[in-house]
Design a protein around this nucleic acid. Structure first.
Lengths: 140, 140
DNA sequence: TTAATATACTTGCATGCGGAAGTACATTGC
DNA sequence: GCAATGTACTTCCGCATGCAAGTATATTAA
């Protein structure tokens, strides 16, 4: 179990810098945008987004501010309930996510290429899924 | 692979609060002390400790300061090389680590109890080991 | 209707972290 | 021996984050 904690830090240390330098997005920003990309209408309420990213609402507020400025994301309101603010992917945002996901995919292949069979990967994903299953918006 | 990132945050969210409230140690502090506990003479150079925790040296400096104050850890110097500062577990520190590890063990069992067989756990540990193998001081 | 409670979000504050710069010491090459 | 380089550590600064408090709106109960 302790290995899970360590493995994450190894992985993050490897992924984060390249994503940042190539696409100007932090790993967490990418994960946020990916959640939006998979949501209906490419948008989510801020509370739901926080739950999916297993983080706090205040983090969402602060993370989305710069993304709005760069135009990857925009605010939308709910006519039924004026408390809620949706975070919605813009068209620019969608293309940017797509590009970055390709890079991520390439890096994943690079990491797994050596000693991992497809079966190993599937097994790992399955076992880890038991942890992440408690979260909404689980990602394959 | 994304699941690995999510699984860690789920796990940390579950472990951290209880460890803090029961033993007054953060999860990262415990991991630090555990590394010392497994090292020869119960001590490590600060650089090596940073490498084992996959963190920066400055983090080690800041984390050890409070641990020194509470007497769980003490400084030792190297007569051969006066640049190095060892971080060494005190006797108090050793008993505290032992107590806390028991709590951790209990929590782990609680988490895995339901849907996990011993074989599942072993498989997961093995697969994750491929990531952590690059770090010194890997922990079972 | 109105008061009490619940929900969605933002802001202020404190904490934990990494990186760069600074200091002290050790090692290498001449 | 001494200059140049490398290593161990600390401190400073900025960034990301959670929590608690505050605001605005919605829902529930009387």
């Amino acid at each position: 179990m302790l290995r899970l904690l360590r493995a994450q830090s190894v992985l993050e240390a490897r992924l984060s810098p390249e994503l940042g330098s190539v696409h100007g997005l932090g790993l967490n920003e990418l994960l946020l945008l990916m959640q939006l990309g998979r949501a209906p209408l490419h948008r989510l309420r801020r509370v739901d987004l926080a739950a999916r990213l297993n983080t706090s609402q205040s983090t969402i507020t602060r993370m989305t501010a710069p993304l709005e400025k760069t135009g990857l994301v925009k605010r939308e309101s709910d006519p039924r309930d004026s408390r809620v603010g949706y975070v919605a992917l813009t068209k620019t945002g969608r293309t940017r996510v797509a590009e970055t996901e390709i890079t991520l995919q390439r890096m994943a292949e690079e990491i797994f290429r050596d000693r991992w069979s497809d079966k190993d990967i599937a097994t790992l994903a399955g076992l880890l899924g038991r942890f992440t299953a408690t979260l909404p918006g689980d990602i394959a």
